[in-house]
């Protein structure tokens, strides 16, 4: 089986643009579906992507989502320029949130984002620098869902 990257695309995410929040992840999902990857893996990657995309929109100034896929692995890297995460361990706790009322009115900000990303990925690496930004590397393995 071909283990080389068969697909790669980058997307821009504009911080603060709530009206377009989620559009990139919908596109990511459509592209992964078109590649014929297993539906459960595509769903997990799309959910992780959406949570991370909304974090960029809610907290950062700008972000870039870098999607790559092989038949066995979906890799999504989201790097933003923004305030960074002061305490990653604390932010990973379910229920911990620094969301504003505007975010909560849209149905977000329950403090589930990072923990849900962890749940929906097989590998997750978060690095952050205060005042500079955050980088999430998320990997969803497709192998276990293949027949």
């Amino acid at each position: 089986m071909n283990r080389e990257i068969v697909f790669r695309q980058k997307f821009e995410i504009q911080g603060g643009d709530f009206s377009r929040g989620g559009e990139v992840s919908c596109e990511v999902k459509n592209l992964l579906k078109e590649l014929g990857l297993p539906a459960p893996s595509v769903r997990r990657a799309a959910i992780a992507s959406y949570e991370a995309e909304m974090n960029v929109i809610m907290y950062a100034e700008h972000g870039v989502l870098d999607l790559s896929a092989t038949p066995l692995k979906i890799r999504i890297v989201i790097e933003d320029s923004g305030p960074g995460i002061e305490d990653i361990e604390l932010a990973m706790n379910e229920g911990y949130s620094t969301a504003t009322p505007e975010m909560r009115e849209l149905g977000f900000g329950a403090g589930m984002g990072l923990s849900n990303i962890k749940k929906n990925t097989d590998e997750l690496e978060i690095t952050s620098e205060i005042g500079k930004g955050t980088r999430l590397t998320m990997v969803v393995l497709t192998e276990r869902h293949q027949p």
């Binding site: 009206s19 929040g21 989620g22 559009e23 992840s25 919908c26 999902k29 539906a39 769903r43 799309a46 959910i47 959406y50 849209l106 149905g107 977000f108």
Partner: peptide, 16 residues
């Protein structure tokens, strides 16, 4: 849901 914004549609789409 009782929400009517575009995020409801995008969320519903993403969770199949």
């Amino acid at each position: 849901t009782g929400l009517v914004n575009a995020h409801v549609v995008r969320t519903a789409c993403l969770v199949d």
